[in-house]
């Protein structure tokens, strides 16, 4: 049987991979994918906690799952808006490469 620690480590690794994607890749679309990975890593922790921390009735704590539900909804909205922004950006600058987007540099 897998322990809670296993799930948390997997969740953490997933988060780290997502973070690495955000920090290392230059394509803004891939960075966005990395962000999605990080969100899902958090979801995994939440569901794991829900399963390992039963309520008094002997069932998982569904409040955590509702939380995950909300995260997924917000993430979907975020993806929609984020991708629209990327499209608008691409129209304006013809690039998705973050190193080319440095107008705010001093």
């Amino acid at each position: 049987m897998a322990t809670l620690a296993n799930y948390l480590i997997v969740s953490g690794l997933l988060f780290s991979v997502g973070l690495a994607g955000v920090l290392l890749r230059r394509n803004i679309l891939i960075i966005f994918m990395g962000l999605e990975l990080m969100l899902n890593a958090a979801n995994l922790s939440l569901v794991a906690f829900s399963r390992f921390n039963l309520g008094q009735d002997g069932f998982p704590d569904y409040n955590a799952q509702v939380f995950v539900f909300f995260v997924i909804t917000v993430a979907a909205a975020e993806v929609a808006v984020g991708l629209a922004i990327i499209v608008a950006l691409y129209r304006a600058r013809q690039t998705t490469h973050v190193e080319d987007l440095d107008t705010l540099k001093f």
Binding site: R26, I31, V98, L101, K105, F106
Partner: peptide, 14 residues
């Protein structure tokens, strides 16, 4: 402090 303004998203993320 404005030398920290690199204009690079990933630097900020870092």
């Amino acid at each position: 402090l404005r030398f920290l303004q690199l204009g690079n998203i990933q630097a900020y993320a870092f």
